[in-house]
Design a protein around this nucleic acid. Sequence first.
DNA 1: GTCTATATTACGATAGAC
DNA 2: GTCTATCGTAATATAGAC
Lengths: 180, 180
Amino acid sequence: MRAVALNLFARHGYAAVSMRQIAGEVGVQAGALYNYTPDKQSLLFDLMKDHMDQLLGAWSEHPAAPNAVAALEAFTRFHIRFHAARPEAVFIAYMELRNLSPENFLVIEKLRQGYEAEIETLLRQGISEGVFDTPDPKIATRALIAMLNGVNTWFREEGRLSLPDVEDLYWSMVRKSVAV
Amino acid sequence: MRAVALNLFARHGYAAVSMRQIAGEVGVQAGALYNYTPDKQSLLFDLMKDHMDQLLGAWSEHPAAPNAVAALEAFTRFHIRFHAARPEAVFIAYMELRNLSPENFLVIEKLRQGYEAEIETLLRQGISEGVFDTPDPKIATRALIAMLNGVNTWFREEGRLSLPDVEDLYWSMVRKSVAV
DNA sequence: GTCTATATTACGATAGAC
DNA sequence: GTCTATCGTAATATAGAC
């Protein structure tokens, strides 16, 4: 059910997908879904929460880098790979925030801010090492994440560029954009 | 009606907003709206089409720059200012693409590609002038636009940074990211 | 645990009076 | 040009049989 919901929410949007549609693709009647989720809102929240937990978990398990440049490169490649591997979850995580209840939104938003804070710390380390030059690390972090998130709007497995190609192209731009 | 629809679609999403809601905020009954639009889909399409026409029109009226660096700076500042001035239309233009009918989607997508093509041309000019170094201008264009679009996710008029501040920060990153 | 059936509410769109 | 009223449909969620 969750896999089906993820796919349908990503393709048509949370509000445009009915419990009947999800049930139809799962192969059961709509009523049966309520054995697995108390309501449609919880289904959306669980999908987004899981995604953010996996993102933060995967990044926290990443090996430490010897210096800020290496750390930023590791982040760039990690972020691209992680997001390219789960385009549907990413799409939902950024597009369906406004369909979360206020309480649920706060939970997800806090997780997102946590991720952002890690990258900001990384930029600040590079500044103190003297290898990065960016006057506002908070804004620079958001700019970089937005740039990297953009990959998912066009990247296709079967396209002209391989994922390592994409990583190289973006790392080149990321590196230069905050360079001294 | 269109102003109200723009606001409600941006806040709650096209699928989650009813004609009754729009009518309520306009101050009429739902039936009266159909004197101004044949249906809800046309209402969405017209909002998005107008936005794209205004974007392309405003950029085409922009004075020519003496060289590629000046042109890229002009684009960066134009894009940020234009988008910051109409956050609701921008939000809809990027979030409601999947709620367009297939024919309507093609129209909007073609306009979007036209905008992208102009920026790509600009990057290619800088490469031939020897002032830009980016191995894949198409991807670099998308990366830059994604980065600049990100401004709208956090910028607030009353915030810590003024719009000229934001322009300066982003222009610094854009410039360096494609520099030789 | 899934089914059928249904309660309740809301949707987009239209008809016809004024 | 807006209103009230309504058609036909579909939504979320629940109840109770099996």
